[in-house]
Design a protein around this nucleic acid. Structure first.
Length: 442
RNA sequence: GUGGUCGUAGCUCAGCUGGUAGAGCACCGGGUUGUGGUCCCGGGGGCCGCGGGUUCAAGUCCCGUCGAUCACCCCA
């Protein structure tokens, strides 16, 4: 059997990177819980009809079937892996609405799968950290203002470059387009979304192609080019002179999100009237997040308001949510060596083994250190101390422990400084910064 | 899913118009009878991503495939 090769789009990290991922997830989780979001995990698989309920994303869904399965059952292709965490959550709410208290806020940190062509920062299997709030019948708008603040806190707790959460509101766009007399707001939105990639001239051409007049296209471009970190965007939109009720409503909402950002997290939020978001279940606020220095790789955290995603005949559960693309974030950072671990193992202390006969003594010392939370391993084999120190060095283990010769005290060496001092395994404490690996930008 | 570029030791790469593989770093051993990182000496490693084809001969040309990456699509 020849050497296995990677599977495109299914990343696997090395232990040092996995430690970083775990640490990142832990920090995100802590922030989510600080805001009172309750943990939830849904199954990886959903019925296809659920997955396709909103949005034409069928081609991205991986379907599930047993290897041995009769042809007729196969035709149903009844199950698929979820491609985000919002749709399964909506299903879960409908299914369990009787057992939940509303407004219901929960977080989910899980793998999702999409059958897209992979490239840097884009994968087929990746981890999302998602928060949502849903309520019965109607959901107060202030939750729309809270979402970016939560992920802002989470992202700012990580050793990564600054982020900017860009906000828009579909009501603004749709209202504006309708106010202009354009009939197909979704199509306009789709075109406007490409502004950064193809430039204003081509966007304008495309709009005219779709039946817009030159003046209408120009107005759409004017709107899309509005960007502000404060409320000044309202005035800028007004100046364009379009009158529409939905537009007014959207502006009011967007203003509230920006206002909350200004108050609670200066520099985090920016009204960016060109962002659209692909998923078509969003009905109001939409979020997209840029990581400074990695803008061209797309948003690392997105979401929005969905008023109609979770509804049955009689019941309706509007929601708002946002999701951090953990794998994208990490993949981009790893790709530039911009996030590293101080060691490749959790171990803080390596106990040198002078002779195989001393293993029991070493194990005793190890147990003593572990009992006080110090991650410890005993050297794999008796060898020259130089080799054992090198074993530790290769892995970034900061301390090597030496048993004292009979009657002598043990000693511990900081192999970074070379300093070695007498120590007692029942009382010695590692410096606080060395107990766990550190994760940082180099 | 469509198209482009790339794929040589663990890593970074060299290998001219086809003539059966090299460097630096890393790794292992010795100098250093057991406390490393310097220095010196020596060593192991590559079906040249994989499969097929053209040719007397292919790392070098052609096709396919897998992987990486870029653009489109879409999106975390």
């Amino acid at each position: 059997m020849s050497k296995p090769t990677p599977l495109s789009g299914f990343p696997e990290w090395l232990p040092a990177q996995r430690m970083i991922e775990q640490n990142v997830v832990e920090k995100i989780r802590t922030t989510f819980e600080l805001y009172g979001f309750a943990p939830l995990e849904t199954r990886a698989v959903e019925p296809m009809e659920q997955l396709l309920r909103k949005g034409e994303t069928s081609k991205e869904v991986y379907t599930l079937r047993r290897l041995q399965e009769d042809a007729e059952a196969r035709e149903d292709a009844a199950l698929g892996l979820h491609f985000d965490l919002t749709v399964p959550f909506a299903r879960f709410v409908l299914e369990n609405s009787g057992k939940l208290q509303f407004p219901f806020r929960r977080y989910q940190i899980q793998k999702v799968w999409r059958g897209e062509r992979p490239q840097e920062g884009r994968y087929r299997e990746f981890l999302q950290a998602d928060i949502d709030v849903v309520d019965r019948d109607s959901l107060p708008f202030h939750y729309d203002t809270e979402m970016p603040l939560v992920v802002g806190d989470a992202l700012r707790s990580l050793p990564i470059p600054p982020v900017t959460i860009q906000i828009n509101n579909r009501k603004v766009c749709e209202g504006f387009y309708r106010g202009l007399g354009l009939e197909d707001p979704d199509e306009v939105l789709r075109i406007i979304d490409k502004l950064d990639k193809i430039g204003p001239q081509k966007v304008s051409d495309a709009l005219v192609q779709q039946g817009a007049s030159a003046a209408q296209a120009e107005a759409c471009l004017q709107l899309a080019q509005i960007s502000a970190s404060d409320l000044s965007f309202v005035e800028q939109v007004r100046k364009l002179g379009v009158q529409n009720e939905l537009l007014d409503e959207g502006l009011e909402e967007l203003a509230r999100v920006v206002e909350a950002g200004t108050e609670h997290a200066p520099g985090l939020i920016r009204a960016e009237l060109k962002i659209a978001r692909g998923l078509d279940y969003y009905t109001g606020t939409v979020y997209e997040t840029q990581l400074e220095g990695y803008e061209r790789h797309g948003s690392i955290c997105s979401g929005g308001r969905y008023d109609n995603l979770a509804s049955t005949g009689s019941e309706r559960f509007p929601g708002v949510g946002i999701s951090i693309g953990v794998t994208r974030l990490l993949g981009l950072m790893f790709g530039r060596d911009a996030l590293t671990a101080s060691r490749s193992v959790p171990t803080a202390v390596l106990i040198a083994l002078p002779n195989e006969d001393d293993r029991a003594r070493c194990d005793r010392a190890a147990r003593s250190l572990r009992s006080r939370g110090i991650s410890t391993e005993v050297a794999p084999a008796a060898a020259k101390f130089g080799k054992q120190i090198r074993f530790a060095e290769r892995r970034g283990i900061p301390f090597v422990w030496f048993l004292g010769a009979d009657g002598e005290p043990d000693s511990v060496k900081d192999i970074r400084s070379g300093e070695q001092v007498n120590a007692d395994a029942t009382t010695w404490e590692a410096p606080a910064e060395d107990v766990k690996p550190l994760f940082s930008a180099p």
